[in-house]
Amino acid sequence: MIRCMAVDLDDTLLRSDLTLSDGDKGAIRRAIAAGVKVLIASGRMIRAMRPYVEELELDVPLIAYNGALIQEAVSGRVLYQRPVPPEEARRLIDLFREAGIHLNAYIRDELYMDRLTVWGERYAVNAGVEPHPVGDLKQFLEEPSPKLLGVGEPEAIDRIQERLRLEFGARLQFVKSKPTYLEILAPGVSKGLALAELAGLWGLDRSEVMAVGDAPNDLSMIEWAGVGVAIGNAWPGVKERADLVVADHDHDGVAEAIRRAIFGEPS
């Protein structure tokens, strides 16, 4: 029996126009009414998640920054955090400048960057947050950032991902959330580990948990959960490793997952 459901936002719960469908919202409310804990697990910062949390009236913790932060939705109390060490973040800034690839950092849930590039502006618009171009990002990294994010052309992201893996080894993780987004995380950070942490706090077995996502950064929770669901527009490798594949994010895929996995109804 599913008692907890974790769902990714971008390209999973959110449609192409970054809105929630009535079908998905209705299914989520039905699941909550049945006693299921429904939570969002996203690579987004907290402030970029909040409008959707409020629209869905969720009052459970949020998994943000790809699992680097777990924070209660209403009180804002931090339950868990594991940021990128500042010394590693400063080294990354030089490497991204050298490669000519935009880099985001996040301090106290604010978005910082060297300068407002086309990529930085696109990201800020998509996330619905105000960017802070500061000239020299290194000056703002005395405090740890939950993650850093490289944003650029897919080919450039592929190249720097391979270079960073060779240079940093196991000291950092590098995972894509979109072809143009490279998430940079501390070791041991993932949506799956964060979800396991919450399930443990709630006394839930993994067999009682469902996770829904689309991208490589969702794989950890899809594989950990008792029922791992790939949305219809998911990356091929995600679909291959999911227990269930449903309709895409523009056609109420999350609602289908809820009907089939939680209520045992046909697709």
Rank of each mutant, 00 (worst) to 15 (best):
E153M: 10
E142V: 12
G232F: 04
P85S: 10
A48C: 09
K191A: 02
I231C: 03
G128E: 07
E240S: 13
G43M: 04
W224D: 05
D250A: 10
D114W: 11
Q139L: 15
E143F: 09
A105G: 14
L137P: 12
L69S: 06
L69E: 06
P146G: 13
F140P: 01
V53P: 05
S21P: 05
E223F: 00
P236D: 12
F168W: 02
D22I: 07
E223Q: 15
L9M: 15
L164H: 05
E54R: 14
A127W: 03
R50P: 01
L92W: 04
D94E: 14
I157G: 02
I93D: 03
P216R: 00
S267K: 11
N66I: 00
G203P: 11
V74E: 12
F96H: 14
R259M: 05
A199I: 05
E162K: 14
G43I: 01
N104T: 06
A68L: 08
G169M: 01
N66H: 14
E167V: 05
G200H: 13
L182M: 10
A105V: 09
D250F: 12
Q161T: 15
G188R: 02
G264W: 10
G200S: 13
I157C: 02
L116C: 10
D59A: 12
W119Y: 14
V60Y: 14
D158G: 01
A225T: 13
L198V: 11
L13S: 09
V60D: 00
D248Y: 08
R171N: 06
M210P: 08
K178Y: 06
K37D: 08
G150K: 01
E98Q: 15
P146F: 13
D59P: 00
D94H: 13
D17E: 03
L201P: 00
R260L: 09
E223K: 14
I93G: 08
R171Q: 08
Q71T: 12
G26M: 05
L166S: 12
E54Q: 14
V125Y: 12
M1R: 05
P133G: 08
T12F: 04
P216K: 00
S75R: 03
L204I: 10
S207Y: 06
R3K: 15
M45C: 14
